[in-house]
């Protein structure tokens, strides 16, 4: 196909498209597009304040060092705790969002949080149950086999990784526990 100034694959006419697609061209005029222009000063947000009142800080709230103050409103769910909490506080207090250390510390603290929380759950009336919490029962009730096999799904090729990621840390922790017990018994 020669490279010319015309569109190589012409579009159907507006009449053809209107007859085929309900609503075709209804927002053709950018003035009908609610996100255009991107920045607008004439929108009524509903705010009846120039500056929002400050939510009380009942417990110390970690914040990005890029913020000069605690934001007027903030979430209070799951305050930092334990070793993971210390890592999170360090990430927020020491590194800006422009530093990889900030994010990598937070990612690492999440893994520590998972381990801490699983261990802590073992001494509660409701310990973690990895099997039921994974929802894997749905494989039987929602056609696990039929949904995957013969469907041309690209993700099936690496699906074997998922149980390794889910069960791997548990198997590793179990192996370490067995090894530690053996060492203790030898002494």
């Amino acid at each position: 196909m020669p490279y010319t100034a015309t569109r190589p694959v012409p579009a159907p006419t507006p009449d053809e498209l209107r007859s085929r697609v309900p609503g075709w061209g209804a927002d053709l005029d950018p003035a009908d597009r609610p996100a255009v222009p991107r920045e607008r000063h004439d929108l009524e947000s509903g705010a009846h304040w120039l500056e929002p009142e400050q939510q009380p800080e009942l417990t110390p709230r970690e914040r990005s060092i890029e913020h000069e103050r605690l934001t007027p409103v903030f979430g209070t769910a799951q305050p930092p705790k334990g070793l993971s909490g210390a890592l999170k506080r360090l990430a927020y207090a020491r590194f800006s969002e422009g530093r990889n250390a900030h994010w990598l510390l937070l990612v690492a603290s999440d893994r520590v949080d998972a381990i801490e929380s699983h261990l802590a759950s073992l001494v509660t009336a409701r310990p973690d149950e990895p099997l039921t919490q994974s929802g894997v029962r749905a494989e039987l009730t929602h056609h696990g086999w039929r949904s995957r096999v013969g469907r041309g799904r690209v993700d099936v090729k690496h699906a074997w990784l998922d149980p390794v990621i889910v069960a791997g840390p548990w198997v590793l922790a179990g192996a370490l526990a067995v090894a530690a017990t053996r060492v203790a018994l030898r002494r």
């Binding site: 500056e51 409103v73 969002e97």
Partner: peptide
Amino acid sequence: CGSCFFCARGLYSNCHNVNPNAT
């Protein structure tokens, strides 16, 4: 919040007054 620098420009998903953890 509907009133910060970004909300005043209609950038509601970029509000500066509600997320202490990140800017």
